[in-house]
């Protein structure tokens, strides 16, 4: 669980490293060395800073990032739940631990248009697979969830990595 009101300290060099790597590491034998050279830093400095950002949770992981859509995981369902505020944290942690939930966040309601305070993104190969998973989630939450919906995406209009406005 990550509290969002805590901000780790980051300096300008840290930001430059994030900016230089957010589209991916260079695919060369010594990628951190290449990043360091491009920024005029030592590779030891780059690796120490990235390690600190991993420890602080700024960098969640450094890994291979698949394009789900190209792998046939085309049904992208945003399940949204109206959970009693007293239970939302427990509910969020239970849904967030499921292996088919890629993101799970608490967000504010926006009444009367939007009664939902818990969001869990579910990906699957087909729509009915996502619907079956969400039905399982509804059983897990039981009466803690007053109602829920699944918002399927019908078009991806834009999808890029994080770009920092710096």
């Amino acid at each position: 669980m990550n509290k969002v009101d805590w901000k780790p300290h980051m300096d300008e060099t840290d930001r430059q490293i994030i900016q230089a790597t957010q589209e991916g590491l260079p695919l060369v034998p010594r990628p951190y060395h290449a990043v360091a050279e491009a920024l005029g830093l030592s590779s030891a400095d780059v690796m120490a800073r990235m390690q600190r950002m991993l420890d602080d949770g700024v960098i969640r992981r450094i890994g291979v990032v698949p394009n789900h859509y190209r792998l046939g995981i085309k049904a992208n369902g945003m399940s949204v739940w109206d959970v009693d505020d007293a239970h939302v944290r427990d509910a969020g942690m239970e849904l967030g631990a499921l292996d088919y939930v890629t993101h799970c966040y608490r967000r504010p309601r926006h009444l009367p248009d939007w009664p939902y305070n818990l969001f869990a993104m579910v990906h699957g190969r087909r729509r009915d697979e996502v619907e079956a998973l969400v039905a399982e989630m509804a059983r897990i939450l039981g009466p803690r969830a007053r109602r829920h919906e699944i918002l399927f995406s019908t078009r991806i209009l834009k999808k890029t990595g994080l770009r920092l406005g710096m």
């Binding site: 990550n2 969002v4 901000k7 780790p8 980051m10 930001r15 994030i18 790597t21 957010q22 589209e23 991916g24 590491l25 695919l27 990235m50 950002m53 602080d56 949770g57 700024v58 960098i59 969640r60 992981r61 450094i62 890994g63 291979v64 990032v65 698949p66 394009n67 190209r70 792998l71 990595g161 994080l162 920092l164 406005g165 710096m166």
Partner: peptide, 25 residues
Amino acid sequence: LADLRERRILSRVGPVISPNTVGAS
């Protein structure tokens, strides 16, 4: 890895940044 990127099966190999730790979203 370069070929998987070329075929867009991977979007990248690199860091995944947590939301709201760098800037705001």
